[in-house]
Amino acid sequence: MYKRKLLASPFMVMILIGTIIPLCAIGYYGLTDELGGFTFENLLAIFEPDHLKALELSLILAAVSTIICFLIAYPLGLILRDSKLGEKGFIIFIFIIPMWMNFLLRTMAWQTMLERNGLFNSLMDFMGIPFVEIMNTPYAVVLGMVYDFLPFMVLPIYNVLSKMDKSVIEAAYDLGASKLKVLSKVILPLSVPGIVSGVTMVFVPSLTTFVISNMLGGGKINLIGNIIEQEFTVTNNWNLGAGLSLVMMIFIVISMAFIAKFDKNGEGGLL
């Protein structure tokens, strides 16, 4: 028994250094002012109009990206499930390959592609189609989010769909259900755990990102992540930055609890 506890100790140390101590530091900075006195001001600062506006934009962009990711990933999962075994592994492999590359580099690649004289517009020009000026707009940011986080949606959905018991679906057909009915009444409800973890894994990083909006938004798209980053790097107000991060954490916990409600089996999700 004693030995087993000993075996767990590296993980305890890891959790302590990697999670508990940083969390306490954020909590300390977030709940104090510059002189070290206790205050809730940094948390309540989220209600300032500038912050609310950034939060609203972050929520909209994150929600749009999550929906687009879902609309791409779910049909893909269905197709892969029904296709013959041989290709399956290969297609999933293709989806995972980009994840082997640093995501900053991938976002940077989009930057050069979408720039005014970038690859994309040169191609358009060559084919005689007018320039598409989406660089430095919210569209470019959503594109970046979808591209970067799509694998996180595809994998859990594919996983849950491929493991689904075929006999349940056959039984539904035997009982006279139409294809649409089978999809909406059987397959979709059974795949909820995968959807839930996919949605959280796309929604949460999209909500807090600042790198994608910095690189593809040209400094014009101000998300809540950018505001927090600026508090640390530009204005040097660690207390406000930490306070706003705390609010974001609370926000994410609430939204995850909300999403998890749909996941009755409790198989997916992070809560």
Partner: peptide, 22 residues
């Protein structure tokens, strides 16, 4: 001025100008 600006940048400006982005 914001609606007229293509991008806000510091270190990237050099390469953007070379690349004829603005």
């Amino acid at each position: 001025q914001k609606p007229l600006v293509y991008k806000y940048a510091n270190d990237a400006t050099r390469d953007l100008m070379i690349g004829d982005a603005a």
